[in-house]
């Protein structure tokens, strides 16, 4: 089976600074990988490059073996959920935040029901009454899980996660691990959390924009 994501000798420069240098790796469906390294080593830039937010200086990025172009980027974005350390919910209430993507033309016909919203929230250890809460009144950990719930409601299969467990307690973290135990979901994450790293089958180590090491172990 071809890889879902493939970086081939990718170099990226931003503001005259090299942020990725000859990075090559591949990730297959269902694999859970973590990018590990010091601050500023280029971990988040790998995720941003895949999403078309950094122009490539050289090399190629492939998604399902199709090169990253201005046309294929729409497909990549429609299959991918990106969840940052401080996710932007982009709406006043949690309910509106969850339904936000369903206002966009591409998802308009799939608007979920309230019971589907509650079901996803419960999977992530979030109470149903959070739906009516103001987005700016909820904690960082809740925001991360709401952003994750949004990805699940959209049926995304590739998750790009940037320190997604940083604000979670043990119970919420467990719920997130359970969600990602689904073999259909592929994860490329930026992580420092040892517990998260244990759940990842592949660890890519980055240093100054270079991929210095790749470790594979039992869990995928």
């Amino acid at each position: 089976m071809p890889p879902i994501i493939r970086f081939d000798q990718v170099s990226v420069t931003a503001h005259e600074k090299v942020i990725l240098s000859n990075v090559s790796f591949a990730l297959f469906q269902g694999e859970k990988a973590a990018l590990f390294g010091k601050s500023g080593s280029g971990k988040s830039s790998v995720l941003r490059t895949l999403l078309g937010l950094h122009p490539l200086q050289s090399g190629s990025v492939y998604f399902q073996e199709k090169p990253l172009t201005s046309v294929s980027i729409q497909t990549i974005r429609s299959c991918t959920a990106y969840i940052g350390q401080e996710p932007v919910l982009g709406a006043e209430t949690v309910r509106e935040a969850l339904l936000l993507p369903f206002q966009f033309k591409v998802h308009r016909q799939y608007r979920p029901t309230d019971s589907q919203l509650i079901e996803v929230l419960q999977r992530l250890q979030l109470p149903p009454d959070i739906l009516n809460q103001q987005s700016n009144r909820i904690s960082g950990g809740e925001k991360q899980r709401i952003a994750l719930a949004r990805g699940l409601l959209l049926g995304k299969t590739l998750y790009l996660l940037d320190e997604v467990t940083s604000a979670l307690d043990a119970q919420s973290k467990q719920a997130v691990f359970e969600v990602f135990s689904d073999p259909q979901l592929t994860v490329l994450s930026v992580a420092h959390d040892p517990e998260w790293l244990q759940h990842c089958g592949i660890i890519f180590e980055l240093d100054a924009g270079r991929l210095t090491e790749m470790k594979r172990h039992g869990n995928t």
Binding site: L51, R77, G90, L100, P101, K105, V106
Partner: peptide
């Protein structure tokens, strides 16, 4: 910028 990028990641077109 993050809010704009989030909308794009959620399937919005540039105009949306």
């Amino acid at each position: 910028e993050n809010e704009y990028a989030t909308f794009l990641m959620l399937g919005a077109t540039r105009w949306e």
